[in-house]
């Protein structure tokens, strides 16, 4: 374990929205986290705990106010979003966000296959690639391999999330970020997409961070779990201890920290 190198590091990261206004909102506070190579981390926390903000500062959607972010040892704190993309695979919560609706399924895959490369005047998609895409799509078991020239906008939410997941991992990312990527799907589809997520992460030994609202999933998937509240990590558990967790344990933690919080608020 100790030879593994850290894939993602956040050091003292702080992010406040609308600083100095009445809407000021601290979304991340002195946030430290190290995710090792090959680790599968699940993240839980209440609404507004800062989970998406954590994801977004890693991606570069917003700049951080303070602290540093390293991806695979590179300091990316100041890199714009599109230049960090070469290290990252991402699936968003909103199925609309991850694909280009007016482009064909195969064109979407071809775009993703070139993530992190300079886009030249070479053909946007090659014959040989199409075969590769077809075999990859077939793994989803959705029959999309027969519909490669269909526009992505015509797919259902579940199909799109599966496609986005495939796009995020087609070119192996250093880090796979999943922000409640099954939350907008019905339970059956969500389970399918989640199963494919685990399969693809295990197969490529992907370092993965998955935000979820489903505590059972958070316990079952991956080998480490963190709970966030008020922009901080309030619970961090891995290995055997994580395996033996129950949903009740987590709920208990939630309540305890919420109680502690309200006590703190009363005292101050």
């Amino acid at each position: 374990m100790c030879e593994k190198r850290p894939m993602l590091e956040l050091k003292g990261v702080g992010k406040t929205f609308n600083r100095g206004s009445v809407n000021e909102k601290v979304a991340l506070k002195d946030f430290d986290l190290t995710v090792e190579e090959g680790e599968f981390l699940t993240v839980i926390g209440g609404n507004g705990a800062g989970k998406s903000t954590f994801m977004n500062v890693v991606c570069g959607t917003y700049p951080v106010d303070e602290g540093k972010i390293f991806l695979g040892g590179h300091d990316v704190t100041r890199l714009p979003e599109y230049r960090r993309a070469k290290y990252l695979g991402r699936v968003f919560q909103d199925p609309m966000m991850g694909t280009s609706p007016d482009m064909e399924i195969q064109e979407n895959l071809a775009l993703a296959y070139r993530r992190g490369k300079v886009r030249s005047l070479m053909p946007g998609i090659r014959k040989a690639e199409k075969e590769f895409f077809r075999t990859q799509l077939a793994r989803l078991g959705l029959g999309l391999e027969e519909r490669m020239t269909v526009k992505a906008g015509l797919l259902s939410g579940g199909q799109r999330q599966s496609l986005t997941l495939l796009m995020a991992t087609l070119k192996k990312p250093d880090l796979l970020l999943l922000d409640e990527h099954t939350a907008a799907l019905d339970p059956k589809t969500a389970a399918k997409v989640l199963a494919f997520t685990e399969e693809i992460a295990a197969e490529n030994k992907l370092t993965t961070v998955m935000v979820t609202h489903n505590m059972a999933d958070a316990i079952r998937c991956g080998n480490r779990l963190i709970m966030m509240q008020e922009g901080r990590i309030i619970y961090d558990v891995s290995g055997e201890e994580k395996k033996s967790l129950t949903v009740e344990d987590l709920l208990e933690r939630f309540r305890a920290s919420a109680g502690e919080l309200s006590d703190r608020m009363i005292l101050s």
Binding site: S100, R114, L121
Partner: peptide, 21 residues
């Protein structure tokens, strides 16, 4: 081309485009 496809994606879904570098 790769560049042209990138421009089409930019107009179609900028969020996705950024995520694809």
């Amino acid at each position: 081309t790769e560049l042209g496809c990138g421009i089409r994606a930019t107009g179609n879904n900028p969020n996705m485009s950024r995520a694809q570098g």
